[in-house]
Design a protein around this nucleic acid. Sequence first.
DNA 1: TTGTATGCGTTATCAT
DNA 2: ATGATAACGCATACAA
Lengths: 329, 329
Amino acid sequence: MGESGSAPTMKDVAREAGVALGTVSKVMNGIPVGESYRVRVEEAVAKLNYRVNSYAKGLKTNKTYTVAVLVPNLVSPFFARLANSINRALSQKKHRMLLFATDYDPDQEQEYVILAEQQKVDGIICLSYNPELKVSDNVPLVSIDRYFGAKIPCVASDNYGGGRIAAEKLYENGCRNLAFMRIGSKLTNEPNKRKDGFTSACEALDIPYTLKIVDDGTPYSAFEDFLREHLRDGKLDFDGIFCVTDSLAYQIVRSLRAMGVRVPEDVQIIGFDGTKYFGDQDYFCSTIVQPLDQIAETCVEMILEKALSKAPSLVCLPVQYAYGGTTRQ
Amino acid sequence: MGESGSAPTMKDVAREAGVALGTVSKVMNGIPVGESYRVRVEEAVAKLNYRVNSYAKGLKTNKTYTVAVLVPNLVSPFFARLANSINRALSQKKHRMLLFATDYDPDQEQEYVILAEQQKVDGIICLSYNPELKVSDNVPLVSIDRYFGAKIPCVASDNYGGGRIAAEKLYENGCRNLAFMRIGSKLTNEPNKRKDGFTSACEALDIPYTLKIVDDGTPYSAFEDFLREHLRDGKLDFDGIFCVTDSLAYQIVRSLRAMGVRVPEDVQIIGFDGTKYFGDQDYFCSTIVQPLDQIAETCVEMILEKALSKAPSLVCLPVQYAYGGTTRQ
DNA sequence: TTGTATGCGTTATCAT
DNA sequence: ATGATAACGCATACAA
């Protein structure tokens, strides 16, 4: 292309079309120019296969149409779907997505934030596990699921409400003795509210509940031990279990079935997230579905909003119960 | 930051440190300068929280350390894992990933390729469904799973070998009447070779086989009809089935069990991809595992290689059988 | 309406 | 070794 094999520039186009540089710029940006000029420029563009250099443009305009997205990985279906939804939302607004996988590592998160800043992105959307993430205040940042303080807007599902719905649904389905299970960080993030909503609903319904909460890194067998402790004569103490994620719920279902406990006949189980087989088939389990598209769209809108400073500091979006085979219908 | 609220530049740092612009540049790029100068610059950088503007740098150096990755979506576990592996491989080589989801749409693919070119990426890695994708020849492109001709390197699993392994494994496990099932594009992409390897092995083993291949868009029920046609007195004609993907295999297993056919007792099933529950738990089914990390690393190495022109036009990487509960062990 | 000139933040080539 | 200066490709204010 161009003269020498490197990409053609506006100058090449201008020479080819026999017009001035500024005219080419105008045509490329849809600014009206004389009809004949426009045609000649467009022909030259087509002939040379010219592409605007967005680096030069970005340097000049201080706008890159690029947003950095930080998630732990793309292997967990939840993160993958989240990234997918964010990507779609950005794409609709003519923005591109720079994706960083942090692997839950606070140091990497910090490093990627710095990289994103160098990259002069128009904003950063992150699902962070670094409680003391430092970010320059000249780049907009929206957090998902983690409240960083009033200065940084946080978008999350209504985790508290989801916990309530789970308890209420189990109650409605006849359960009278519930359990909540969770493995997770001690960081104060929004998903922790799932438990609070759950216990609050149990208390309102006046039914007993048991909590089994273990720290990150605890082997899964801790849950199996817990289940076994509550198993007497092949019957479980509980008739309903709320698990903090679908992933955990799925494992619990397997363990219970292996122990001879029937799901949902003997015990009903509800997970959280709304994960589906292969992304598009059935739900793994009955679940509280997170509105990922809505979360993504909200994040993107907030990031691209100029007035981020006076955005709400926490946005909670409504969740929904969905049947997935591990509850009575 | 800086003076006015906008990000500080090298000029600001130079003024703050009382040195010349060029000196700051050298420090930022690790080029040796006098010890005292270096310290002063570093202090100024820290004080101002200065970040190199990669757009200015990219404009000057014509190197962006950014690679565009095009996949259909991040919802399918296979694509998500692939993107994850590519991201990791790029990250290790100090490159960033610009992710585009094409939704299988040839027009969008073309559009994103153009966008990537504008973005002056150092290369493009794509898993394309557009047989006539046009790409300027001044930007390196590596294709996954689709052979575009000798000029564009293609990286893929050894799909043919995988098909063979599936047939041989089923035979080894006692199967003597096999079936292959597939839903998929008629485009000539590498995964089509799964069938060829399978049939070739069947013929070598001298065992009969049946093919059920339907076009994209065909409802899944076509497979259930097919199964029912081959069901006599609760027994299936086949004792082994090779499915083109884990996703299909999973559905087939469900259908069969619903029909009262036992898996793996009555019929053994092998899928393809190596997909796991929630990305990190068990395999969905017995499967031919694709070496995603290796595919990703190969793509990245080739893209960052200067001598892409004399790269091999097709690289096939070895696959492996893995037990996942739908075969006899 | 079209053309010209300046500067965005950086690197690199010069003299010094 | 350090400091001044010219590009990189583009947008834009200004002059024609």
